Amino acid sequence: MSFLLISMCGGLGAVARFVLNTSIQRWWNRMFPLSTFIINVIATFCAGVAAAAYAHQVVPESTYLLFVTGFLGGFSTFSTAINEMVSLARNRHFAMAAYYLVATIVVPIICVTLGWIVGSLGR
Rank of each mutant, 00 (worst) to 15 (best):
S2A: 01
S2Q: 01
F3W: 01
F3T: 09
L4H: 10
I6G: 05
I6W: 00
M8F: 15
C9I: 01
G10P: 02
G11F: 13
L12K: 12
G13K: 04
G13E: 03
A14K: 07
A14P: 02
V15F: 12
A16M: 03
A16N: 09
F18W: 14
V19G: 04
V19Y: 04
N21H: 12
N21S: 13
S23P: 02
S23K: 08
S23C: 11
I24K: 01
I24L: 05
W27S: 01
W27Q: 01
W28G: 00
N29I: 03
M31K: 09
M31D: 12
F32C: 05
F32T: 03
P33N: 05
P33Q: 07
S35Y: 06
S35N: 06
T36N: 07
T36F: 01
F37E: 11
I38S: 06
I38E: 05
I38W: 04
N40L: 06
N40Q: 09
V41T: 07
V41K: 00
I42E: 05
I42M: 08
I42V: 12
A43C: 09
T44W: 00
F45Y: 11
F45D: 09
F45W: 03
A47K: 01
A47T: 12
G48E: 02
G48Q: 02
V49P: 04
A50N: 08
A53F: 13
Y54T: 08
Y54F: 15
A55S: 13
H56N: 15
H56Q: 13
V58F: 14
E61S: 15
S62V: 10
Y64F: 14
Y64C: 06
L65R: 12
L65K: 12
L65P: 03
F67P: 00
F67Y: 08
F67H: 02
L72T: 07
L72R: 04
G73H: 09
G73C: 08
G73D: 05
G74M: 03
F75C: 07
T77W: 04
F78V: 10
F78K: 07
T80E: 02
T80L: 01
I82T: 10
I82V: 10
I82Q: 05
N83K: 13
N83S: 14
N83R: 13
E84T: 04
E84D: 13
E84F: 08
V86K: 12
V86E: 06
V86C: 02
S87R: 14
S87E: 13
A89E: 01
R90N: 13
R90W: 11
R92L: 04
R92K: 09
H93R: 09
F94R: 02
F94M: 07
Y99H: 11
Y100L: 02
L101D: 06
V102K: 01
V102R: 00
A103D: 06
A103G: 06
I105M: 11
V106P: 06
V107E: 10
V107L: 13
V107K: 09
P108R: 06
P108E: 12
I109M: 15
I110M: 11
I110L: 10
V112Y: 09
V112I: 14
T113K: 10
T113V: 11
L114M: 14
L114A: 14
G115T: 04
W116H: 13
V118I: 12
V118P: 11
G119M: 04
S120N: 07
S120H: 01
L121E: 15
G122H: 10
G122Q: 07
R123E: 15
R123N: 15
